[in-house]
Design a protein around this nucleic acid. Structure first.
Lengths: 76, 76
DNA sequence: GAGGACTAGGGTAATTGGGGTG
DNA sequence: TCTGTCCCAATTACCCTAGTCC
């Protein structure tokens, strides 16, 4: 049995998502998600190869805010 | 009984991880982790059978280094 | 000794990154 | 200002069989 897989050393409870996954959730192009990461609007984790991974919890939070913030503007 | 489920009294500071576990931490394919080891981007320990093992401390360090979060943990 | 699960290896397809443009 | 699409190069993902680990 996979005794080794009994407990993943996943200290972070966040699952990582690929740019394509995030792009599908936001209905945008992966390129756009990359721009968000470049602009610093979303935390990104890079693989040794240079590809980006995003935290599921962070993406969900942003998505929830957008859903809830349809026209709920704070100022105007 | 598999002693794997038990906490052996290792004095350990470097727990060994399997390619699958490292792959899960980076959200990549186990083969990709193998390529990193082949490319020399990550230290690898080979078993007598040829399988690879990675040090948890090293993997954690890489994750921390590659994590470009807005978190101001250490002002590098 | 037997079994299940994972890994190594090579090869090919899909995705991603970066720059420039509409 | 922001997003979508083009190019090309690099990285990653999935296919297979055989061997190893527990």
């Amino acid at each position: 049995m996979t005794a080794s897989t009994q407990q993943l050393p996943q200290n972070s409870q966040d699952q990582l998502l690929t740019p394509g996954e995030v792009a599908a959730m936001f209905r945008v192009d992966p390129k756009t998600v990359t721009r968000w990461a470049t602009a610093g609007r979303i935390g990104s984790i890079r693989t040794p190869g240079g590809h980006r991974r995003f935290r599921e919890s962070e993406v969900r939070t942003m998505l929830a805010e957008l859903t809830s913030d349809v026209d709920t503007v704070n100022g105007v």
